[in-house]
């Protein structure tokens, strides 16, 4: 489904600002991959580069999604292909209602893929259902998108969008950070209920705790813009116990 080949990326227009130093990663259909790594190692950058954030420049390598290179596609085109990023820091957009925003997002996708737009009535039903499922206070979705939402509320709102948009590849960037126990369970249940042979996930997290609920197929450790180790779920437990020290030193040696 997703293939990342020797991906190098840096901050646009800044020389020697390489953040990703040759990432190789293959996510097959139906798999859940977890990415862990110390602060500043490049996890969010990877997530954003996958989604096409214009602040970064791909300086080498390639990304293919469903056998098509996507590095030249704009973020909206990637979304139309079925990619989704749950943001670590969702933007606040004054005056825009979550309902209106999500309806437009669905409509844009329908338009791009030539599907029929969902009727307002059906959408409203779906929306209300999902609002309840992710446990967002209904008063909240009458406000502006993310404006004045608490950290946890923003994350729940990302889950709401994930559930409504039903992407083929969902990248969750620390969606579990800052969540209370109930919310954490909701995120996990959301992911688990959406898990299917046709859908893949990349879950960026700092905490083994989430992986107790969502059992990943593969765990990667990302340090200094490189994947330094790949393993099964046990790798997350190791990290939980020993931290990243061992990888930090190896990566400094190779650098």
């Amino acid at each position: 489904m997703l293939e990342i080949n020797k991906l190098h990326a840096s901050v646009i227009d800044i020389e020697n600002s390489e953040i990703l130093n040759g990432i190789d990663l293959t996510v097959n259909k139906g798999e859940v991959h977890a990415i862990m790594g110390p602060n500043g190692s490049g996890k969010s950058t990877l997530a954003n580069v996958l989604m096409g954030r214009p602040d970064y420049e791909v300086t080498g390598g390639d990304i293919t999604f469903q056998n098509q290179s996507i590095i030249d596609l704009a973020p909206d085109q990637r979304a139309h292909l079925g990619m989704f990023l749950a943001f670590q820091y969702p933007a606040e957009i004054p005056g825009v209602r979550p309902w209106q925003f999500l309806k437009s997002a669905l409509d844009s996708k329908a338009e791009a893929t030539g599907e029929q737009k969902m009727s307002v009535r059906n959408f409203s039903k779906l929306f209300d259902e999902k609002v309840q499922a992710v446990g967002i206070n209904p008063a909240l979705v009458k406000r502006s998108l993310n404006e004045g939402f608490s950290g946890g509320e923003k994350k729940r709102n990302e889950m709401l969008q994930l559930e409504v948009l039903q992407p083929t590849l969902a990248i969750l960037d620390e969606t579990d950070s800052g969540l209370d126990v109930d919310a954490l369970r909701i995120v996990a249940e959301g992911v688990n209920s959406m898990r299917s042979p046709e859908r893949s996930f990349i879950v960026v997290t700092h905490y083994q705790r989430l992986l107790n609920y969502i059992t990943p197929d593969v765990v990667h450790i990302l340090v200094n813009g490189e994947i330094v180790k790949t393993g099964g779920p046990e790798l997350a437990l190791e990290v939980e116990k020993d931290g990243y020290k061992e990888y930090l030193s190896t990566s400094e040696v190779t650098a």
Partner: peptide
């Protein structure tokens, strides 16, 4: 940030600005 957020959900650059 706002533009990227909306575009990542499928809105075109123009739609995102408009919204």
């Amino acid at each position: 940030d706002q533009l990227f957020y909306l575009m990542a959900r499928g809105l075109s650059e123009e739609e995102a600005h408009h919204m």
